[in-house]
Design a protein around this nucleic acid. Structure first.
Length: 136
DNA sequence: GCCAACGTTGGC
DNA sequence: GCCAACGTTGGC
């Protein structure tokens, strides 16, 4: 099983909405690198749900329940989306500041490529972030 | 609100 | 195919 981190602006789509909806298509990715990551996701993979701009913190954990298929919000038909299901909240949201302050996370894509909206997370980083968030 | 990073577009 | 101009993202 692989681990990921996906970003959403809470003004557009928040963790609360994800929880309320249960399963939700993760649409709107219009970046080639992020799309490659979407296509690499397998059913059962887990992802951190990160709030960009507002909050700037990991607030929950979601699971991939449907692998990549054409994004219904994309009229060109070139981009894909996946379906995500809310698994559980992160009890103590892990802020970007806390991630930057942790030397073991210096290489994480969230810090190194701030504009990427879908990125892989190593098993070691996943475990550490879960511990930091009280989501063991 | 500003700015850095970076992807995209269009002229040549 | 290069590169300047421009638009968008996202942190501060």
């Amino acid at each position: 099983m692989a681990y990921w981190l996906v970003k959403s602006e809470p003004d557009a789509f928040s963790w609360d909405q994800q929880v309320a909806n249960g399963v939700e298509p993760w649409t709107g990715v219009r970046n080639a690198q992020a799309a490659l990551h979407l296509k690499a996701m397998a059913k059962g993979d887990k992802a951190f749900f990160y709030h960009s701009n507002v909050g700037k913190e990991i607030v929950g954990i979601v699971e991939v329940v449907r692998t990549a298929y054409p994004d219904p919000t994309d009229e060109t038909g070139r981009w894909v989306c996946v379906d995500m299901k809310a698994v559980r909240p992160v009890p103590r949201p892990v802020t970007l500041a806390a991630i930057k302050a942790e030397p073991a996370l210096a290489e994480i894509a969230l810090v190194r490529q701030s504009r990427l909206s879908v990125m892989p997370v190593s098993a070691a980083h996943w475990a550490l972030l879960c511990r930091m968030g009280g989501a063991d």
